[in-house]
Each structure stands twice: as structure tokens, then as C-alpha cells.
Amino acid sequence: MKLKLIVSFFLLTAGFAAFSQGKQTAPGVEKGLIKVSVMYPYAEGKTFNMEYYETKHMPMVAGFLGANLVKYTIEKGLSSGIPNQPLPFMAIGTFYVKSLSDYQAAIAPNRDAIRADFPNYTNISPVILVSEVVK
């Protein structure tokens, strides 16, 4: 038991040290990738169906992106970083893609279908941020 604990501690410490020195990144997230964050701000009276978003909407959009898509993530907002402050976002969907121009070319002809699906899971207008992964 003691040896297991020591080995676990060593692996955890070594992993943290490598991560903090920039030698390790999250799986599938590399410098230079384009990150498209689709953020759904919290507001009183707004709704969000996470099950639909996870099982229908995000897979649909991911399908439009094809081989350009490296990975996507879905986050459910839990709280603000400041105690007793409102939740900033109810959810955030993120696509990591290789090429911004290929992303835009894939989304453009499907924009109406994507927007038409919004009422199936939310009454929130998303805020979209396109960025480049630098580390």
C-alpha cells in the first residue's frame, strides 16, 4: 500500500511538473490550433437543454466540420469564479480545428441549419470567440 502511494505521488508530481513547464498539453490540443468557443451567457429566464446539445446539436455541427475538426468539448457552467456572483455562462461548446478558413467554409453553407436548431435546446443567443491556441 505504501509503495502504491509513493508511486502515485511520484506520477502525479512528475505529471504536474511537466505540465507546468509547458512540456505537456491537454490531449488533442496543440499550439497553432484554432479554438472556436460558443458561449451561452446566463440570464434570468434563459433555458438550456444540455442533453439535446450534447447528443444532437454538437454532433451535427461536428459533422459539418469533417476532417478539419481535431476535437470538441462541452462544458456545463456551475458557478462564477467570484462567490455570490451570478453564473457567467450556462454552457460553452468548443471546437478545435486545424484551419480557420476551412472552418468558415464548412460553417457558411450550414449556418441556417445550425441556427434553426437553436430553439431545440436554448433561447440564448451565443457569444462566439475564435482564437488561436498559443500554449
Rank of each mutant, 00 (worst) to 15 (best):
M1D: 10
M1V: 13
M1H: 13
M1G: 14
K2T: 15
K2C: 13
L3C: 11
K4E: 14
L5A: 11
V7S: 02
S8V: 02
F9A: 15
F9G: 13
F9R: 08
L11V: 12
L11N: 03
L11H: 03
L12S: 13
T13V: 13
T13K: 06
A14T: 10
G15N: 05
F16E: 13
A17L: 15
A18L: 09
S20I: 08
S20W: 09
K23W: 13
K23H: 10
Q24P: 00
Q24T: 10
A26M: 08
P27T: 02
P27I: 05
G28M: 03
G28L: 04
G28K: 02
E30M: 11
E30V: 10
L33V: 00
L33Q: 10
L33C: 00
I34G: 00
I34W: 01
Y40W: 11
P41H: 02
P41E: 04
P41M: 02
P41D: 05
E44D: 13
K46P: 05
K46S: 11
F48P: 03
M50T: 08
Y52S: 06
Y53T: 03
Y53K: 02
E54W: 05
E54S: 08
K56S: 08
M58L: 13
M58N: 06
G63T: 06
G63A: 07
G63P: 03
G63E: 09
F64L: 12
F64I: 11
L65I: 06
G66L: 03
G66M: 01
G66P: 02
A67M: 02
A67W: 02
A67K: 09
N68V: 04
L69C: 11
K71F: 12
K71R: 14
K71N: 15
K71L: 15
Y72G: 11
Y72V: 09
Y72M: 13
Y72L: 12
I74S: 12
I74V: 15
I74N: 09
E75C: 06
E75L: 07
L78V: 11
L78I: 09
L78S: 10
S79H: 12
G81V: 12
I82E: 04
N84Q: 14
N84E: 14
N84V: 07
P86G: 07
P86L: 03
L87C: 04
L87D: 03
P88F: 04
P88S: 03
F89I: 04
I92A: 09
G93L: 01
G93F: 03
F95R: 01
V97C: 00
V97N: 00
K98D: 07
S99G: 05
L100I: 15
D102Y: 12
Y103F: 14
Q104E: 14
A106H: 07
A106K: 06
A106E: 08
I107N: 10
I107H: 09
I107R: 07
A108H: 11
A108N: 10
A108R: 14
N110K: 08
A113T: 13
P119N: 01
P119S: 01
P119L: 00
P119W: 01
N120A: 05
Y121M: 09
Y121N: 06
Y121D: 08
I124P: 02
I124T: 05
P126V: 07
P126E: 00
I128L: 07
I128G: 01
L129P: 07
V130Q: 15
S131D: 15
V134P: 01
K135D: 06
